[in-house]
Design a protein around this nucleic acid. Structure first.
Lengths: 204, 204
DNA sequence: ACCTGAACACCGTTCAAGT
DNA sequence: ACCTGAACACCGTTCAAGT
């Protein structure tokens, strides 16, 4: 039927992203479909493909916003003298941000690009921005170490926290652990960083 | 056309599981489809539903075999005097088992049961069997602690190792970490357990 | 008893045709 | 220029009908 143009291109883009975000928050990535998005915003499926290359493109855009959101939350954690307290505070910030809408955050790990496709550069940059904040917390614990070792230690910490929250969300750590992921994340951060600190002393 | 019966029920079951396992090893969970399985084994799609309740049932069966396989691998790790060496050896066993067919192992975390469905009891039991082996390694590091604390510490370690391997497999930890997950897992195990040990001493 | 294949209700994506 | 909707090539699952 041709143009309807009740929305500017920017509005249409937001409309699509909002509807998709709702869908994922409610039903996870599995609940997302181009046709269902179109239904919800009263456009035809084809219209989505004027705005996004395909569903993966759309999903990556949402993931980017989630990563940005986490970075802002981490920035709001007050700087404290004690690096260990600071680290635990950041862990709790991560947890509170990601557990607001678990299915939405899970998107980052449920979604896989097809075959050989790599994540876009801007996506890696957003991830790196978060990693920098983790490094900033790890660094004071290992003053004698090289930047490479600090990066590596930060990656391990990040991956560990992710592992706990992701298993908790998927109910694959549940039975025994009915208290939620909080204490587990605290334990990981405390013990792991204490171990790092000790190794730093021993090695110097 | 009615029965063909060139295979016994057990053979048919294995046929289906083998074809599905191949499909997942090659293309991940996304590459699995009832119709494609049927094509590969020269049966009609409907036949699958005489043997399995649905695709989730089939996938859970495969997951169960993977968990059993890991348990056997962990059992082959020789007992050593030094608990720390033992722990690292188990970490490497995990890594070598799961990285043989990364897409297959990834199945455990890519696959989610619909809505409110819970994992079956036998599945939890298989997982628990693996967790017991992890606890056996953690326990000597914290002799003063309650069984609950040991369980919790083992869960954290398990989740941490999972987090590293899963991010590495998904290429979401890649850029900086081109050496593979091995050193990261070693670092996690060493630092985390050292921290646990230290806390045990301090707390008693 | 076992298996088929059509049927139902869905997908993602493309693109000629309409305004 | 923008949007539609039919078309193509797929899904999972069910079940009457065949042997």
């Amino acid at each position: 039927m041709g143009r309807r143009s009740s929305h500017t291109p920017e509005e249409l883009r937001e409309l699509i992203l909002d509807a998709s975000t709702d869908l994922i928050s409610e039903c996870g990535l599995g609940g997302l479909s181009a046709r269902e998005i179109a239904r919800r915003i009263n456009y035809s499926p084809g219209t989505l493909y004027n705005v996004f290359e395909n569903l993966d493109d759309l999903v990556l855009t949402i993931e980017g916003r989630l990563i940005d959101g986490l970075a802002s939350e981490l920035d709001r954690v007050p700087e404290q003298g004690d690096p260990m307290r600071q680290a635990r505070a950041m862990g709790r910030a991560y947890l509170s941000y990601t557990s607001k809408q678990p299915k939405l955050w899970n998107l980052l790990f449920e979604h896989h690009l097809p075959a050989g496709r790599d994540v876009p550069v801007w996506y890696q940059q957003k991830l790196d921005a978060v990693m920098q904040r983790v490094e900033a917390v790890v660094a004071p614990m290992m003053p004698q170490s090289s930047p490479e070792d600090i990066t590596q230690s930060a990656h391990v910490l990040w991956a560990g926290v992710h592992g706990i929250t992701s298993l908790a969300t998927a109910d694959k750590l549940a039975v025994v652990t009915s208290n939620g992921a909080g204490p587990l994340v605290d334990l990981l951060i405390s013990a792991y960083l204490a171990g790092l600190k000790q190794a730093g002393k021993a090695g110097s």
